[in-house]
Computed example of a mutant assay.
Amino acid sequence: MGTPLCTTSYGAQGGADGGGFMPGSQGEGNAVAKRGYGSDNLRPVTIKQLLGAEHPNPDADYFMLDGNEMKQVTFVGQVRNISTQTTNVTYKLDDGTGTIEVKVWIDAEAMQNDEMDMGAGKKKPAEQGYARVWGRLKDFNNRRHVGATVIRPIEDPNEITYHLLEATVVHLHFTKGPLETQQANGGATNGHAAQQQITNGYSGGGGGGDSGDVLRMQGVSQMAKKMFACLKQTPQTNEGLHAQDIATRLGVEITEVKKASDELMGLGKVYTTVDDDTWALLDI
């Protein structure tokens, strides 16, 4: 029996024949390959991953991410700009890790049907609102964009956090291996030790009192370590902490906090939430 299609409460599942994107759902066996889908699965990503994915050659219809083929993708982001042209509508999306253009090509008949749907209450993405995209990454004239098959506004803010966590889980699956493999290789013991370090960081243990002990991050500035520890140890909502709040708690200038945030975002440790100066941890 093949692995069942993975679905979520936000409808972020693969196509009925293409397979889901969660770890373990890639290899449906020869039956899928015979239908011509193969690795044409749906993967949750961040914009930074899209911009950093490798393109094997100009004629390839896929990209490589974490050593695996990536064709169809889904991601979320805030709509910074909407530009309507004769042939397409271009959305500029920002998810805190980067920005990318999303193009929705206009079909006259589909547009007429869409206008009828709008009259029935169907919503479209709006500037400064959040949206989820399904589509394919494209590279045209050395500039990347996503050709969207679907783009819809996000109404539940939990979907944003859910997606970022899910993208992280899938990334770890491909870079660290499936959980079963890690356990078979003794990874469970190492994972327990790492979890204990995090627990010590929360409680102020771990010795030395240095905020860097939270994760013992190597090659990271002291300011970034302090900001990371502040975010981890301060009670907060899903929105995280604002730069001014962090600066006040640490007794530093807000410019130092923003510099540290750039460092942590580059490491994939934090992401922006309600605005560009409010961060939450992307650490599970």
Rank of each mutant, 00 (worst) to 15 (best):
A188N: 02
T189N: 01
N190G: 08
N190K: 13
N190V: 09
G191D: 05
G191M: 05
G191Q: 04
H192N: 05
H192E: 12
H192K: 11
H192Q: 12
A193S: 13
A193K: 15
A194G: 04
A194K: 13
A194W: 03
Q195K: 00
Q197I: 07
I198A: 04
I198M: 09
T199Y: 04
T199S: 02
N200M: 08
N200C: 01
N200R: 08
N200P: 00
G201R: 05
G201I: 02
Y202P: 00
Y202D: 02
Y202V: 02
S203P: 00
G204K: 11
G204R: 12
G204H: 09
G205D: 10
G205W: 05
G207M: 13
G208Y: 02
G209H: 01
G209A: 08
G209S: 03
S211C: 14
S211I: 11
S211T: 15
G212C: 10
D213W: 06
D213A: 15
V214S: 03
L215E: 10
R216Y: 05
M217D: 09
M217K: 06
Q218C: 01
G219H: 00
G219L: 00
V220Y: 08
V220A: 14
V220R: 15
V220G: 08
V220M: 15
S221Q: 11
Q222G: 06
M223Y: 06
M223S: 15
A224Y: 07
A224N: 10
K225R: 14
K226M: 13
K226G: 08
K226W: 06
M227C: 07
F228N: 09
A229H: 11
C230D: 12
L231V: 03
L231T: 05
L231N: 04
K232E: 12
Q233R: 15
Q233S: 13
Q233G: 09
T234L: 00
T234P: 00
P235V: 11
P235E: 13
Q236W: 01
T237M: 12
T237D: 15
N238A: 15
N238I: 10
N238K: 14
E239T: 11
E239L: 08
E239F: 03
E239D: 14
G240W: 02
L241E: 05
L241K: 06
H242F: 01
H242T: 07
A243R: 14
Q244R: 12
Q244P: 00
Q244H: 06
Q244C: 03
D245E: 14
D245I: 11
I246N: 07
I246G: 08
A247L: 08
A247G: 02
A247P: 01
T248K: 15
T248R: 15
T248W: 06
T248N: 14
R249Q: 14
